[in-house]
Amino acid sequence: MKISVVAVGKMREGRLGELAREYRERLAHHLPVEDIEVREARVSGHDVAGALAEEAEAMRKVTPEGALTIAMMEGGKQIDSHQLAEWMDEWMVSGQRHVVFYIGSAHGLDRPLCRESQRRLSLSKMTFPHEMARMMLWEQLYRAMTIIRGEPYHK
């Protein structure tokens, strides 16, 4: 199974970028992973919906056919690390080839893209900066894999 995080905007260099890369590389010892960045659309006037639709189209273009898609969004389901591990284990056992997590821009994700996604997930009821959310998602994916493998990282 391959895991991709498709995010709007670039991850700047710095502590969060380094941590995200570290967790992604740790996870890559167990599964193929990729971090895909799509360009953030300019909001023309007050047309946030148009910008979100443009970003969503770019995200769809990089999503492999048949991938399980998960929209990371406010109002998504909140789960703990063990439940994420159960989901990942289920995906691997069932033969799911590709799982794609979508992370939107500061304006969020396009609502139609959220509805199209098979799952909608939230890291917390709190709002986090875009780069922090990416780092936290990679950390949680790595943590879930250590739970599945019975490794001591998760305590």
Rank of each mutant, 00 (worst) to 15 (best):
G50K: 00
D47L: 00
S44R: 08
G50Q: 00
R60T: 10
A53L: 03
D47I: 01
T63C: 10
D47G: 08
A53V: 03
P32Y: 10
G66W: 09
R39F: 00
V62L: 08
A49G: 03
E54C: 01
T69I: 06
R39T: 02
A41T: 05
D47M: 10
V38A: 10
V33C: 15
H46D: 12
P64V: 11
I36V: 15
A56N: 14
P64Y: 07
V33W: 06
E34F: 03
L68E: 11
E57S: 01
A53T: 00
M59L: 15
A41W: 09
E34R: 14
H30E: 13
K61H: 12
H30V: 00
A51H: 11
V38K: 04
E54Y: 00
G66Y: 02
D35Y: 08
T69W: 04
I70C: 10
V48Q: 07
E40I: 03
V48D: 13
L52R: 02
E57L: 03
R39G: 01
D47T: 04
D35T: 06
D47V: 06
H29P: 06
K61L: 08
V62F: 02
P32S: 13
A51P: 15
V62K: 07
A49H: 01
A51Y: 06
T63L: 01
L52I: 12
R39A: 01
D35R: 12
E34M: 07
A53I: 02
E40A: 15
H30R: 07
P32G: 11
R60F: 03
V33S: 09
V43Y: 05
A67M: 14
G45M: 10
A41E: 13
A28F: 05
A49D: 15
G45Y: 09
H29K: 15
T69V: 15
V43I: 15
H46F: 09
V62H: 00
G45A: 04
A41L: 06
P64D: 09
R60Q: 08
I36Q: 10
E57N: 07
E40V: 06
E40H: 07
A67Y: 06
H29C: 13
D47P: 08
A49S: 15
I36A: 03
V43T: 07
P32N: 14
P32A: 11
E34C: 10
G45C: 06
E54Q: 15
V48R: 10
A28G: 09
P32D: 13
G66M: 03
V38H: 04
V48T: 10
R60V: 06
V33E: 14
A51W: 09
G50C: 02
A58D: 00
A67G: 05
P64W: 05
L52H: 07
